[in-house]
């Protein structure tokens, strides 16, 4: 069955045009993972190869529960990196995500989650994140994550978000809302602060049916 599946993926890759050079042939001796196809043809289903949930590490959510990124699996996730003391850009990113949530049909909502990851490992502890969620009236679909500096830097790499600590304890950062499919693969990035909820909603609709 697994072979059949990987054949199917290969076939899709071939038809859709592979976006990455094929991975070198995996040697089963050392790799426990199944052989990969590097298929990345949008909007065909992806192998989990590009999932950011492969990033190891333990995070704390706003309820002070330990979570791995893998627990986000199964839903389409709308993700942004922010910090709660941010006065200008971050509230707009959060608002954009709320607009997306509000625009979804009732049937769609259950399948979509929202994730805010804080740059501010020092000030944004779980309690502060909980407080922020309440201030912003974020419902149960939202997860706010606190990590250590290393994990935050690694995640920023995978989401292609740039940031830099400033002298006053705040952060300079690029603004992006990233949509992950149910496997955790980034499928769309809304760059900047010009809201484009309509585009996101089309994407989410497509990803939910996959």
């Amino acid at each position: 069955m697994r072979q059949l599946l990987s054949l199917l993926f290969l076939a899709i890759a071939f038809v859709g045009g592979s976006c990455r050079r094929q991975a070198s042939v995996a040697t089963p001796s050392c790799c426990a993972k199944p052989p990969r196809s590097s298929a990345f043809s949008v909007p065909a289903p992806l192998t989990p190869d590009a999932s950011i949930y492969q990033l190891p590490g333990v995070w704390l959510d706003q309820h002070n529960h330990s979570v791995s990124l893998n627990t986000l699996k199964g839903k389409v996730q709308v993700v942004a990196m922010i910090f709660t003391h941010c006065g200008y850009a971050c509230p707009r990113l959060v608002q954009e995500m709320k607009d997306i949530e509000d625009s979804l049909s009732a049937s769609q909502r259950a399948g979509v989650g929202y994730v805010l990851v804080s740059f501010d490992t020092r000030r944004d502890d779980p309690a502060r994140l909980q407080q922020y969620a309440e201030e912003q009236r974020l419902d149960g679909h939202w997860v706010l994550l606190h990590g250590n500096a290393e994990e935050v830097r690694q995640l920023s790499m995978l989401l292609n978000v740039s940031y830099q600590p400033a002298a006053d304890g705040n952060f300079n950062h690029s603004n992006a809302v990233v949509i992950l499919d149910r496997q955790g693969t980034p499928r769309q990035t809304l760059e900047g602060l010009s809201s484009n909820a309509a585009l996101a909603i089309r994407t989410i609709g497509r990803l939910e049916t996959q």
Partner: peptide, 16 residues
């Protein structure tokens, strides 16, 4: 042609 922007794979994805 389906318009689809994919993050995480800028140069790798078949051009949108």
């Amino acid at each position: 042609t389906v318009v689809f922007l994919s993050a995480g794979c800028n140069d790798a994805v078949a051009p949108a």
